[in-house]
Design a protein around this nucleic acid. Structure first.
Lengths: 239, 239
DNA sequence: AGGAATTTGTGCGTATGTATC
DNA sequence: AGATACATACGCACAAATTCC
């Protein structure tokens, strides 16, 4: 069997899931355009150095997620949906009319002991805190505060952090986020809301709280996202 | 290759679908009891005279339909569709502290031409409208308005409608909801808000808009759910 | 219109990994 | 620790749908 492409220490995602992730991210990054036809399965199998059946499972997974449409005798196509970017990558915000290319701008990165008001997650007493502005089509629509448990990486490597945090986790920290749990309610924009944000601090906001998991039931990340429903909406796909 | 077991004239269902149908019938006929463990996949493969991979595809299909639960290292089990939370698997509201047993109370059922303000879904000009109150642990936490496209059933059969609409769709209308897409924003409680609802009409609410799908891309249902985040929160699990 | 080439779908059999009992 | 059972993955052959000449 082809050996897994990750270290032997960590339990890797199955190969077909890794490939599905890569395809999904290529779509989000714009490397695969909506409507575009993918290479034949046999070519992709050769490219990824796996058997055709493995590629087929990855593609089937992408279809389930609504990213691809598969047509027998024809090919695999990037879904023409209004919403290609927002579905995967666990980013769930879209413009009110749908769609919007997601971007992020880092405001601050700090490592500190977890404040008492945070819910329990991870095993370390410290965590890395990321604060970001979130954009859709160059419009700032949300604020984000992300707490990554510091147990696996007491200090962050001094590399460029990509716009997709999960991609950064995967490529630089070897942390594979397998699933997440979002909880939505009402809240107020935080006191660190930047001056140039379209809504001032203290105003009402839709609040998304999230736990992200690696492996089975191990919460490794907690985040909060604030947005105003005039500028964005939260979209979830259920199966 | 094993020849298909159906006539040569009609296009046969794939073998794995035939087997899935047989398993489904056995469950519905009561030959397979809820919670029962199926034989090992290798035995079933021998029984049906197919390869293990084919049986696995059939079982996976049954799992998609919610008929089976598959557990690695353990076995395949008939799902308790009536009793388990599976029937509410698309219901995403929980009490603020988590959990809560979901219930529903029907307020009104009407069939009418789709109002202009509805987004596009289904193929018919008419739809069935359900209005319901939603409970968690006997506390009324949300209101629901559901529009089911009337293309498949111009009139609803005069049967009892179970608390789980999706179960009713499946058992009485033969409509299998495969997935759904939720979109969250802020809204106002509707003008038909009952007097005894904890929040009066016109107040701010968290609004969940949902499209439900049969097959892969066919929207057949549109619904709106209003709730107050003091009484409930929306939870989404993402993979 | 029609036949060949292409591409995905179905199915077989087997080996090995991993979770559960 | 061992046995059982599902999960992943390989490679191959042929069917069915589509596309192209």
């Amino acid at each position: 069997m082809t050996k897994p492409s990750t270290s032997l220490i960590h339990a890797a995602l199955p190969r077909y899931r890794q490939i599905a992730e890569q395809i999904a991210r290529q779509i989000e990054a714009g490397h695969l355009v909506v409507g575009q036809k993918l290479p034949p399965e046999r070519d992709m199998a050769a490219q990824y150095e796996v058997a055709v059946g493995t590629i087929r499972k990855a593609l089937a997974h992408c279809e389930e997620l609504g990213l691809l449409t598969r047509r027998q005798g024809s090919g695999n196509y990037v879904t023409d949906a209004e919403r290609s970017g927002a579905l995967y990558s666990f980013f769930r915000l879209e413009l009110p009319d749908g769609g919007g290319l997601p971007r992020a701008e880092m405001l601050a990165i700090d490592t500190m002991t977890k404040p008492g008001h945070l819910p329990a997650f991870g095993g370390a007493p410290t965590a890395h805190r990321f604060r970001r502005k979130r954009y859709l089509d160059d419009r700032c629509v949300a604020l984000e505060e992300i707490w990554l448990d510091a147990s696996t990486h007491p200090a962050l490597p001094a590399t460029e952090i990509s716009e997709s945090l999960y991609l950064y986790y995967r490529d630089c920290l070897d942390i594979w986020i397998t699933h997440a749990e979002d909880s939505l309610s009402l809240g107020q924009f935080p006191d660190w809301t930047p001056q140039d944000f379209p809504v001032p601090a203290g105003e009402n906001a839709c609040l998304v709280e999230r736990f992200s998991y690696v492996e089975h039931r191990q919460k490794i990340e907690y985040s909060r996202t604030w947005f105003d429903s005039r500028f964005a909406r939260y979209v979830a796909r259920l199966t």
